[in-house]
Design a protein around this nucleic acid. Sequence first.
DNA 1: ACTTGACCGGAGGCATCCTCCGTTTTACGC
DNA 2: GCGTAAAACGGAGGATGCCTCCGGTCAAGT
Lengths: 197, 197
Amino acid sequence: MSPKQQRRRPRSDVQRNRAALLEAAQRHFLQQGVGTSLEAVAKEAGVGAGTLYRHFPTREALLAAVLQTRSEELEARRADIAQIDDASEALRQWLRAMEEYFSAFSGLPEPLMAAAREQQPDNPLTVPCENLIATTDEYVRAAQGAGQVRPSVRGYDLFLSAVSVAWTMGAGATDEASLDRLRALIESGYRQQNDEE
Amino acid sequence: MSPKQQRRRPRSDVQRNRAALLEAAQRHFLQQGVGTSLEAVAKEAGVGAGTLYRHFPTREALLAAVLQTRSEELEARRADIAQIDDASEALRQWLRAMEEYFSAFSGLPEPLMAAAREQQPDNPLTVPCENLIATTDEYVRAAQGAGQVRPSVRGYDLFLSAVSVAWTMGAGATDEASLDRLRALIESGYRQQNDEE
DNA sequence: ACTTGACCGGAGGCATCCTCCGTTTTACGC
DNA sequence: GCGTAAAACGGAGGATGCCTCCGGTCAAGT
């Protein structure tokens, strides 16, 4: 049984091409949104279409890889937020951080929602989504424990609302004042009122 | 100057083709969403691609024409809602009616938001959107007059929230319970609390 | 250096969009 | 009815993008 599998060292051009593809893809996603032409990405990276699809079989796979960098930034912000004493304020900031993350590229909310829905692990965006929902739920529970958030609220609900707001930003290019009012609407929706129990 | 313009009677095939296109388009929008293939629509209507594009120069134009029928249903519901005494309940039902209207076809929220943003009248969806926003604002003002909705809320804000919820329904296929919680979140966000002034 | 297998590139098949123009259809005057 | 011209039709075709496939290339190990 012991396969002994003397693996060859990975070739250097593989890593080089992968890095070039990721950089080009990020540029295009930023400028053109997630629907950008993958052939244009390949051309800008200086590789053929086949190479792109070998590295990233689907658009979602490429997107997930590009988002990996940003996920780390989000994780850093999460660490900062964990220092905050006020559970309600921590939740608030976490929601804003997620919103910004979701707004990184125009059209990003679509595939994220699709990934959150279909639980199948063949979608490379599913796992990140699950993690975000779980993290949100932690913040929600903490704030509920402090009596600052209604008991009926789920982490998933606020994840949904954050994706919705991000979609509104990207699709609508709504002015900042409207967004603030929309956020205020949601926030006063989930917060526990003083006279409630 | 008087051109006298003795206009010829419009040809009969024009109206026939237009009707066939609208029916085929509605079927396809219902089944495939607003992104459906326009060539398939033309084929199903039994006309060439050129005829489709002559009648409806853009996808939005076709969409607006198909939505016209549904707009009339919405108008009928608006008339019903106008009978309701409780301003808050009227607003509530109006928001639900808009949500259902926005959920008619999968992917409909996107072009609606685009139309609401760009004020240019070359987009055939702009006028319907403006009307919906204005109507929503009337309901909001009425409910504010009765002290049931916070003064800071604008009709546009609740229009946005309705589009967002519709997008969530369409894109996410979220379960009904989550949607109810999301709606409750928004509703408790815009409602005037008893202890507020 | 040379072997070998992993890797590369881009041509090509397919789908869709949208336009252009030769052909057909229709309304109207006789 | 019938001729005529304006209006409308239709589908070929150029452009773009997706994704696959396979002959050629390149680097890791000997």
